[in-house]
Every structure is written in structure tokens, then in C-alpha cells.
Write a protein that binds this DNA or RNA. Structure first.
Lengths: 210, 210
DNA sequence: GTCTATAATTGGATAGAC
DNA sequence: GTCTATCCAATTATAGAC
């Protein structure tokens, strides 16, 4: 009994390790090559297992792909930074804008968006989920923050959802969007900082309470 | 002689028609399914020719894909509308913003961006070209227009390239970007108009000459 | 659970007849 | 130029031994 229990534990541990290895390999490959160009044999090879093992853990390629994306989002720190204190709109907007820009600057964010955009017609729930997990945390943070500043009498905003998107859009469209089309395009930290600061100024010009 | 010349003309005409049919079929398929999921046999079938004929006109699948994208851009009317006259910044910005939003609203624009973003790592020149052909005409139009209004003393802008991107970014991020992730998401004409108008107001708050 | 070996299908690309 | 028929490589997925 003790022996067979020990054996089972061992098998479970190995299975867990192999499963993790498969997922790690799949993440790397899917993010760099896209869904269609990745064969499960390539995943198996990169993970150091046989393709049959891959199929034991993930019935189909689509299941593997879907499982992986969920795991990637777990790793993403979404609520990082929290909501800045009210009282200084420029400072608060700068902080949120910088955090957002930092997320957009990561290579993994770029690869992830590229793959999900490509597969959105075939995996609609993944596109939906990336939108929720990627952008919404910042939209939510921004909403709470803006309401605070409005209550403090420092900002005056009619349509808050629209104002939020304007702010993030001014950043997004320079720092992230072009890099999806032009591979290898670099945006320097200085440029990023300039863009965020300019977004804050334009936003304040429109929405500062008079 | 006359006969063989007539025969050659006939063959040329047929070849041209088949070539056009192949390109039409390929456009439809590539835009809806993406590069990898389209087989050349499917293209041949949809075009009503054999796969060997496809290969006579386009040596490789990549050649076919590249040839098609170039043709799509020819069809796009890029400079439409021209530069609005200076004198009324709100009116001019509204016009350019509406034209831009209209381009972004087309299904074909969405499909094209999706496919090119997905293949940008493998076809870097296509991503570059889409950026030039898609966004740049509006950036150029906007630049010329803004300079006119600045010279007329109605706007005051330090960093024109940045201001341009802010304006288009405020539109783009609401009207286009989310639709790449959330398939089937509709943006109504009313919403679009509201977003464009709001972008104009925010822009004016920041850049109107005092 | 994991592996080796392989089945079954499909894809890109070509040879040769007309 | 176009077609039929086909080659060859790669891919998803499974069967059966350990």
C-alpha cells in the first residue's frame, strides 16, 4: 500500500512537471509564431516530452491554446499600483498613464495581442477576455480616480467613460498600436514619458474644473 | 498569322480573367480566414481554376498574398476629401475626424488590419506599407490643415506630430481598436459621431490659440 | 502516465498532356 | 495557359507496449 501510494505520488509529480513543461513551451511558441504555425510536435519537442503526452493533458490543440492564455493572464499583475489619492490630478493621471504605458511596452503584451487579434474570429472568448483583463483594470482604476477628483472639485467631466478612453487612447495610439504593424519599432522611455505627460496636459486642458 | 494572333489574344484575355478571378477569390479568403488557414486549393476552387493555374500566376503562396495586399490598397481611396480650408478649426477637425472614422468603420479595414497584424513578423514590409497607406494619409492631411490654422492664428501647437496622434488616437481607440479583439462589436453612427465631436472639443481645449 | 510508431489527412508544389 | 494527376512533406491525432 505504502509503496503503491508512493508510486502514485511520484507519477502525479512527474505528470505535473510535464504538464507545466508543455505549457511553458507552448506559451513561448504560440507567442512567437502564432497559433497555426505551431505544431504540437514542436511543442512536445521543446517541452522534452512525446506528442502523445501532450494529448493526454490537452485533448486538442485548441484546448492547449485556450488553457495557456488563461495562465498568462494569471501572471499579469493587473491591479498594480492601486488608485492614486485625490488632490493632485496631474500627479494621479501621470501615475496611471505611466503604469499603462509600462504594460504596453512589454514584449509579451505585444505578442499576446498579436496572437489574440489574429485568432479572435476563431476564439471569440479569448479576445473578450483579453480586453477585460488587459484594458479594463486600467479603465476601472481611472474611473475610480476620476470620480475622486471630481468629488474633490478638481475635475469636471460629463461623460466619464468617454474621457477615460480619450486619455488612454492618446497614449495607446503612439506607444503600442504602431508596434503591432511595424515589427521591431522601438519606443524609447523618453518618448513614452513625453507622450504620457502630453496626454495629461491635453486632458487637463479639457477637464480641469474652472 | 491572323489566326494565331487571334488565338494569342484569346489566351491572353482568358489568362487575365483567370488571374483576376484568382485574386478576387484570394482576397475574400485571406481577409476572412487569415494567411495560414487558406489553402491554395481552396483559392483555386473558389476562383474556378485548377491549383496549377494559381501557381502559374503566383510562384508561391507568399507571392499571392503580397500581390493581393498591394491591389487592395490601390482600391482604397486615400486622399479623399482633401484638406479643409482654414478659418474654422472645429469644422475642419470634424471633417477630418469623420473621414478617418468612416475608414475605420469598414469591415474590410478591420479584416485587413487583423490579417496584417497577424503576419507582420513574417511579412514586415506589409505592416510597414499598411501603416503608410492607412494612417499616414490622414496624418498628412491633418498636418497640412493644422499648419494652416496655426498660420491663421487660430491654433497654437508646439509638437504637431504629437498633437495629430492625440487627435486620431482619441478616435481610433474607441471606434476601431476594441473591434479587433471583440468580434462582432458594433459601433453605431451616433456613437462614432459623439466620439469624433468629443475628440474635437478636447483637442480645442488644449490647442486653441488664446 | 509516458513513450514509440503510425494512421489518416491535408498542404504546397510540380510534371506532362492538350 | 490550363488542366489532371500526383509527389512529398508536415500535421493532427491515436494504438499499444511498458
Amino acid at each position: 500500500m505504502a509503496v503503491s501510494k508512493g508510486l502514485k505520488d511520484y507519477q502525479d509529480r512527474v505528470a505535473g512537471e510535464k504538464r507545466a513543461a508543455v505549457m511553458d513551451a507552448a506559451i513561448t511558441l504560440f507567442l512567437s509564431d502564432g497559433y497555426d504555425r505551431v505544431s504540437l510536435e514542436a511543442v512536445a519537442k521543446a517541452a522534452g516530452v512525446s506528442s502523445a503526452t501532450v494529448y493526454k493533458h490537452f485533448p486538442t490543440k485548441a484546448d492547449l491554446f485556450g488553457g495557456i492564455m488563461a495562465r498568462l493572464w494569471e501572471n499579469e499583475a493587473t491591479g498594480e499600483g492601486g488608485v492614486p489619492p485625490a488632490g493632485d490630478p496631474r500627479a494621479g493621471l501621470l501615475q496611471i498613464g505611466r503604469d499603462y504605458a509600462a504594460l504596453l511596452q512589454r514584449q509579451q503584451t505585444l505578442d499576446l495581442y498579436r496572437v489574440i487579434i489574429a485568432e479572435a474570429p476563431r476564439f471569440p472568448e479569448l479576445g473578450q477576455e483579453l480586453h477585460e483583463r488587459g484594458k479594463k483594470p486600467y479603465l476601472d482604476r481611472l474611473r475610480v480616480y476620476l470620480i475622486g477628483e471630481i468629488e474633490a472639485g478638481l475635475l469636471s467631466i460629463d461623460d466619464i467613460p468617454l474621457a477615460k478612453r480619450q486619455f488612454l487612447g492618446m497614449i495607446n495610439d503612439v506607444v503600442f498600436w504602431p508596434r503591432l504593424l511595424i515589427v521591431g519599432l522601438e519606443v524609447t522611455p523618453e518618448e513614452t514619458e513625453k507622450v504620457v505627460a502630453a496626454a495629461v496636459e491635453t486632458f487637463m486642458a479639457a477637464y480641469a474644473a474652472r
